[in-house]
């Protein structure tokens, strides 16, 4: 959306338009980068510098805050929980989402359009609305405060994306490749494993990583549904008002960095999901 507007302006060679275009780009970049940069500075500064004023604009490369963070009680367990939940979410959303994406791209069935809409609609209900009934249900079934239970909720959040990304991946593979494999001695299954899977594996990986990031960043369900087995986001949220400033910065940094790296690694496929060619 912003991209289209920007390139329209870029095509215009008049000076004020060009100035506006460049300032908009700079502003948007600063909007995203500056907070992350402050986060980086404060994370790589000693606890004393973090709490002092004025703050430096260049990081000190002091690992004091990070060391303190690593030593903080419960942090490592929370980190482990985050990884476990995100990993489970990744596996479940691909295991469920990829076959759905395949079916959407290869078969015609009644209600296909409605099904696609419903997949998106799972994101239409705000989580706080569902939190109470979910919590009650989880307590009754014994799923509360477990990594698996939380991963189930995160999987529902990640599935729409998993389905849409894999749908576009499968649609990008001509059906003739599969048909050729069938005539060359493959069953539907072997044609899938020998031809389709190798071709979409990078995309599937991307989609899995995206599911991982969704779970990694999710805080609301994690805070409501877990008590003992908190994920890192929930743990930090819980200790937000009691923990020192440098702990918050270090925690924020640890949360942001993997998500950033992962999203950057799979950006090509996320563009593909929205039907925008990678430029």
């Amino acid at each position: 959306m912003t991209d289209a507007v920007a390139s329209d302006l870029g095509a215009d060679t008049r000076k004020p338009a060009r100035f506006l275009y460049i300032s908009a780009v700079v502003l948007l970049c600063a909007w995203v980068i500056v907070p992350i940069y402050f986060l980086l500075i404060n994370t790589l500064s000693s606890p004393e510098t973090v709490t002092s004023f004025p703050k430096p604009f260049i990081p000190e490369f002091d690992l004091g805050s990070l060391t303190f963070f690593a030593g903080f009680a419960g942090i490592l367990t929370a980190l482990k929980n985050s990884v476990v939940v995100a990993g489970l979410t990744m596996i479940m959303s691909i295991a469920i989402g990829a076959p759905a994406g395949y079916a959407l791209s290869r078969f015609d069935f009644p209600g296909k359009g409605l099904f696609r809409l419903l997949i998106l609609l799972t994101r239409a209900f705000p989580l706080p609305l569902l939190a109470l009934p979910l919590a009650v249900l989880f307590i009754r079934t014994g799923l509360d405060d477990t990594a698996f239970g939380l991963a189930l909720v995160h999987t529902t959040l990640a599935i729409p994306f998993a389905v849409l990304i894999t749908f576009s991946l499968f649609s990008g593979i001509p059906i003739e490749l599969e048909e050729a494999a069938w005539t060359l001695g493959c069953t539907r299954l072997t044609a899938f494993t020998k031809v389709v899977l190798p071709l979409i594996l990078p995309g599937i990986t991307a989609s899995a990583i995206f599911a991982f990031v969704i779970s990694w960043n999710e805080v609301f369900a994690a805070a409501v549904l877990t008590i003992e087995n908190r994920t890192l986001t929930a743990f930090l949220l819980q200790n937000l008002d009691t923990s020192p400033l440098h702990l918050k910065f270090a925690g924020g940094f640890i949360l942001v960095v993997p998500a950033l790296i992962f999203i950057f690694a799979v950006r090509k496929y996320l563009f593909a999901m929205w039907g925008i060619a990678n430029r």
């Binding site: 001509p174 003739e176 048909e179 050729a180 069938w182 005539t183 001695g185 493959c186 069953t187």
Partner: peptide
């Protein structure tokens, strides 16, 4: 199924 028919096929877009 196609694989048991003793046929081979050449497709328009090569595949």
């Amino acid at each position: 199924s196609p694989k048991d028919r003793g046929i081979a096929m050449v497709f328009q877009n090569y595949a």
